[in-house]
Design a protein around this nucleic acid. Structure first.
Lengths: 134, 134
DNA sequence: CAGGATCCGATCGGATACTG
DNA sequence: CAGTATCCGATCGGATCCTG
């Protein structure tokens, strides 16, 4: 049959909505913004615009969506103060802090193998010779 | 046509000034395919099409570009056997194996916080928050 | 100030066809 | 079998405008 029907909720999940926890983790962390946001929040709660500034140039749209996702997942908590002007602080939760371990692993790895020039354009260890394994 | 001035297909989205190793790591790992490929290769070398099958439905184009990047970074080694039909095996390098630690952290995290039934809701693969905020 | 709604361009990524 | 080139649609994300 031809699934021409528009899948309303069948998104861009190229790598099938992995049924495994690792798969989901990979999918979640497979987003630079998520990691960046967590990294920043790990250093302390901050307001929307501050966080936005920290992240460089991220549109409010993007930041909002990521924050919303993280909030739904319970990794970040949103605290809105009903006052004027509005104040909203985002802070990491216990669960979220555990992402710190992943970040740490990432950092460790980065320091070890990605400290030098990220310039990797052509021919590195590329040998297309007849090299026989074992 | 003159495809000599072809743009690099380095998975780069936003131009976050990746001056830091962590930034670069985040950027690198901020790609689901990269993580997925490494995860698979960590379990043993495999041939192009096998790997492709393992990954589900990834186009040769995409797989090739990721593999190329990983090779340039020295995380994966490509071994081509000059024979017919062609045989190419990809296997992880020492450096690449260290990504295993990141994967492990990810897996640990996933098992701890993302192992429950997924509920389809927001856009992509859905995640469940076993701990719903407020 | 926080963030929702739109418009729209840049990019990604899959399908297909072709080569060695 | 491995990989490349091209076409093109789906998605992302930034810019902008607007509201509470």
């Amino acid at each position: 049959m031809k699934p021409s029907a528009q899948a309303k909720e069948t998104p861009q999940s190229h790598s099938d909505c992995n049924a495994t926890p690792l798969g989901r983790a990979i999918h979640l962390l497979g987003d630079s913004w998520i990691l960046l946001i967590i990294t920043n929040l790990l250093q302390g709660s901050m307001r929307f615009n501050i966080l936005r500034a920290e992240l460089g140039h991220i549109s409010s749209k993007t930041l909002t969506s990521r924050l919303k996702l993280l909030e739904e997942l319970g990794f970040v908590q949103r605290r809105a103060f009903l006052e004027i002007p509005p104040r909203v602080e985002y802070h990491i939760t216990e669960k979220g802090q555990e992402l710190g371990e992943v970040i740490a692993a990432l950092e460790k790895f980065g320091n070890k193998h990605l400290s030098n020039p990220p310039i990797v354009e052509s021919g590195d260890c590329a040998f297309t010779s007849d090299d026989i394994p074992l």
